[in-house]
Computed example of a mutant assay.
Amino acid sequence: MPRSIQSTAAALDPLAAIARAPRSRGPLATAAWRFVRNRAAFAGFVVLMLIVIACVAGPWLLPNNPIDSDWSAISLPPTLQNMHWFGTDELGRDLLARTLQGGRVSLEVGLLGTLVSGLIGVAYGATAGYLGGRVDAVMMRIVDMMYAIPYMLIAILMMTMFGRAFYLVVLTISAFSWLDMARVVRGQTLSLRSREFIDAARAIGVSSGSIIARHIVPNLFGVVVVYASVTVPNIVLTESVLSFLGLGVQEPMTSWGVLIQDGAQKLESMPWLLLCPAVMLCVTLYCVNFVGDGLRDAFDPKDR
């Protein structure tokens, strides 16, 4: 192939453009360049995107419905018959379709819970760190008191009293998931508030709220992204534990935790009911952890 054609093809390749991004293009371009060069993180990202696409589009594209029963294939082990690749349960429902549907619910809980807890944690931690003094001391003592509350017992109590609706699962998990984010953001804010550009903003009369929103929070982007990638698997795992205990989402919705609970009860007779959703959950958590490690290394200023 001529060199001109090769150079044109390389220029049209977005991944190649990111990989060639020089460090002088800015922190985001440099972080993307470093992330792509991290093979484990980029491979985890690709596998994670494939899982997300499969969970979102799979239940609509598969010939088998996650709710309807195939009475001719009850308790069928994994087989190519009627495209029951993961087998069926005791009601003849396709396990592959149910696993993908459960993955959609688990990922929605993880992403929404991370979004809610991230917003609360960033706002709380940035406010405490910037104001400092007694306000910071009081706000962080509140965080310490909430750490002392047995989180899982409170979650079980709330789910028992108010039901197992989807939004309540998200709110219950998010109610305590923002504490670590608040501490991390507060520590970063303490170092940012003494920088020259913050002093300049104060000198020209910018209000504290505007400084936090326009100057503090944007400079926390890397830390928030990295810590959010750690929060997602924790929330997914927490939802799976609640569902395993019978306190998760209700039928006809399902999740990986619900499927694992059902499979654990029939482990001896139908082991595939436990193995398939458990493997999907483990692969997803590993991929998110790889992506989180890659983002941490990409945004680490010490390695630049």
Rank of each mutant, 00 (worst) to 15 (best):
Asp300Arg: 12
Gln101Asn: 11
Thr30Val: 05
Ala165Ile: 07
Tyr124Asp: 13
Val249His: 05
Ala16Val: 01
Gly121Lys: 03
Ser174His: 03
Ser174Ile: 14
Met146Trp: 04
Phe35Ser: 01
Leu119Ala: 12
Ile204Val: 15
Ala31Asn: 08
Asn64Val: 02
Thr160Trp: 15
Ser240Lys: 06
Ala21Arg: 08
Thr160Gly: 13
Ile142Asn: 09
Gln250Lys: 09
Ala203Gly: 14
Leu168His: 08
Met152Glu: 13
Ile212Trp: 07
Arg141Lys: 02
Thr172Glu: 10
Asp262Thr: 07
Ala19Thr: 00
Leu107Tyr: 01
Asp136Arg: 04
Ile5Gly: 02
Gly103Ala: 01
Ala16Thr: 09
Val258Asp: 12
Gly294Asp: 01
Val258Trp: 05
Arg25Phe: 00
Ile120Leu: 04
Met146Gly: 14
Ser177Pro: 06
Asp297Ile: 03
Gly257Tyr: 02
Asp13Gly: 08
Ala43Tyr: 09
Ile211Leu: 09
Phe86Val: 09
Met161Ala: 15
Leu274Gly: 00
Val143Thr: 11
Asp293Cys: 14
Ser177His: 06
Gly26Asn: 03
Thr88Ser: 12
Tyr227Cys: 10
Ala10Pro: 03
Leu107Gln: 02
Ser194Thr: 15
Arg183Cys: 13
Val135Thr: 13
Arg195Lys: 14
Val288Leu: 15
Phe86Lys: 01
Ile5Tyr: 04
Val226Cys: 12
Gly292Val: 12
Arg214Leu: 13
Leu168Ser: 08
Asn234Asp: 10
Ala19Asp: 11
Leu157Ile: 14
Trp272Val: 04
Val105Leu: 07
Gln6Arg: 10
Met161Ile: 15
Lys302Arg: 15
Ala200Thr: 13
Pro150Gln: 04
Gly246His: 10
Ala10Glu: 07
Gly263Trp: 00
Ala40Arg: 11
Ser243Gly: 12
Gly257Val: 00
Pro63Asn: 08
Arg98Glu: 12
Tyr167Glu: 07
Ala213Trp: 14
Pro27Ser: 00
Thr30Phe: 04
Ser240Asn: 05
Ser191Cys: 13
Ala126Ser: 10
Ala200Arg: 09
Arg186Phe: 03
Gln6Tyr: 01
Met145Ser: 13
Pro252Tyr: 01
Arg183Ser: 06
Pro22Ala: 04
Ser72Val: 02
Ser24Phe: 04
Tyr286Phe: 06
Val226Phe: 06
Ile18Leu: 00
Trp33His: 09
Val241His: 07
Thr254Phe: 06
Thr88Pro: 05
Ser7Ile: 05
Leu171Trp: 05
Ala29Trp: 05
Phe299Leu: 10
Ser177Ile: 12
Phe244Val: 08
Leu112Arg: 09
Pro252Cys: 11
Trp85Val: 15
Leu153Ile: 11
Ser191Tyr: 13
Ser191Arg: 15
Arg37Ile: 04
Val226Leu: 08
Leu100Ser: 00
